[in-house]
Design a protein around this nucleic acid. Structure first.
Lengths: 144, 144
DNA sequence: AAAATAAATGCAACTCTGTTGCAAGAATTT
DNA sequence: AAATTCTTGCAACAGAGTTGCATTTATTTT
């Protein structure tokens, strides 16, 4: 199928050997919009990969710039697909992360530009992380 | 001393009994500007309070609106003093958090207003967290 | 100020998350 | 298809955070 082909392509382009767990985990990210926690992946990947394998796979993907981590208020780690600008060792995740407090899904709002923060004199910013809590489109729609 | 008196006042105002660990931990926050991690408190509190006590104290302070947590990129929990607007069960921490990548201190920039984030149609925001990474005033000053 | 009550502390044990070393098993290369 | 390289799973471990319970400390009541 098309998705599987895409997965293979993506792995090879990043000089990663194509294995069952990598393919499966990567396709999970490609199949859905939101961010995934380690626990989500452990469940959704179906029959059990070892916890360690999942950790190592995620770590590898982060290093290669395929996915990135999202800081959350409750201090769990979330992972989401990077867009094409990300390369090995250098992430460009200057976008807004949105966490829905109703369905507790997290997603990246790539269309939104991160607003300028006016820092006090003497501070220099290198990266700005914006995490918005609220209600997402889907949950608001269901209210009507 | 004045600080100790302030500590007692603050605890009583929040209907908390005045104990050694609470006083000590609260005065740690009052004595310095930056945010503190659990580990910092364990070290700086001097002779050993139990880990559990520190956890429970921090939890209590958060519930009472005395301190609040800060999400960080490396997913460790940081705590910082709340300003007066915070009350029990309701935090107003709509301010910018700044993490210095040189001295790795974290502090709250209370003077800075959180910029408006223009969300896509259909999203509703209830809280916006902004975490800025960069170099703080002190570290920049030392470069000259 | 002392006794009674209520709350906080410390300890032990446990769970959950994440990491490391190493042998066995897969994917690549030749 | 064999040799090499890389990945996986297991076991064991480290750290962070939580819970129950007995003891100690703070607060209230008399």
């Amino acid at each position: 199928m098309a998705v599987n082909y895409h997965v293979q392509e993506l792995l090879k382009r990043n000089q990663l050997s194509v294995t069952e767990s990598r393919s499966k985990i990567l396709s999970l990210f490609l199949q859905q919009e939101g961010a995934l926690a380690h626990a989500d992946i452990e469940k959704k990947s179906g029959v059990g990969f070892d916890r360690v394998t999942i950790y190592r796979t995620l770590q590898t993907f982060v290093e290669k710039g395929i996915i990135h981590t999202i800081p959350t208020a409750d201090n769990t780690v979330l992972y989401a697909l990077c867009k094409d600008e990300c390369t090995e060792g250098h992430h460009h995740d200057q976008h807004v992360h949105f966490i829905c407090s109703q369905c507790s899904s997290t997603r990246c709002l790539d269309d939104i530009t991160v607003p300028d923060v006016k820092l006090p004199a003497g501070y220099r910013a290198t990266q700005v992380e914006v995490v918005v809590n609220g209600i997402c489109r889907e949950c608001l729609g269901e209210e009507n």
